[in-house]
Nucleic acid binder design. Structure first.
Length: 197
DNA sequence: GGAATGATGTACT
DNA sequence: GTACATCATTCCG
């Protein structure tokens, strides 16, 4: 028998800090198998939330029932309800206990566009996944997925062998009231599918 | 037990 | 640009 170690995973790179992971995720496609049809989009906008040291993070005041998935090792999925209506999805980053997370804020639609259009009740490609609540609706992501891990219903696919050729822009995060000035929102320069302009 | 609060999206003026 | 829908979670008393 080999001594105990972490299970082999193609997702071990997610155990880096949330800011690093937020930038690396911009070279990946987020793929959903939910509902039996594959839907997917390239990640073009992310935000890093840095656990108990970040006043804007849901993990800032320590673990709760809701935020428990954030305290697992990188690769966990954390979904929460926003404004009573919208679900937003995070990929947990860092070693277990650090509670880093990356909010996925926008996708460039790539697969299952027809299904996404039906779920979103719009045919406008630019508006299918251009916001954290929009993309969860398009991919069929609900609260029940919180606490699951990447690799089953949701997975990541590399788009480029290495870093993306485009420039990554860093700026302040959207819609928060604390730690407004930290430049932890990352977008692909000039991409037309991000949530703002 | 009760009230305040959002990591938002859409519709309307 | 402003209004508001809508509810799980959190915090306070």
């Amino acid at each position: 028998m080999v001594p105990y170690s972490d299970p082999p995973s193609q997702y071990n790179w997610l155990r880096q800090d949330a800011v690093t992971v937020a930038k690396l995720l911009l070279s990946y496609e987020l793929v959903s198998q939910i509902g039996g049809t594959e839907t997917a989009g390239r990640i073009v906008e992310t935000e890093a939330y840095c656990g108990e040291i970040d006043p804007a993070s849901h993990a800032f005041r320590g673990p709760t029932l809701r935020t428990a998935p954030m305290f697992e090792a990188g690769g966990q999925i954390y979904v929460y309800l926003s404004y009573g209506i919208h679900t937003c999805m995070n990929i947990v980053a860092g070693p277990a206990g650090t509670a880093g997370a990356v909010l996925i804020r926008a996708l460039e639609p790539s697969r299952g566009v027809n299904t996404m259009q039906t779920r979103r009740r719009t045919t406008n490609l630019w508006q299918l996944c251009s916001g954290p609540g929009k993309l969860t609706q398009a991919l069929g992501i609900g609260l029940a997925l919180s606490g699951s891990r990447l690799g089953a219903e949701l997975s990541l696919r590399a788009i480029t062998p290495g870093p993306i050729p485009e420039t990554i822009i860093a700026g302040p995060r959207v819609g928060i009231s604390r730690a407004k000035d930290l430049p932890w929102r990352f977008t692909i320069a000039d991409n037309k599918f991000v949530s703002k302009r």
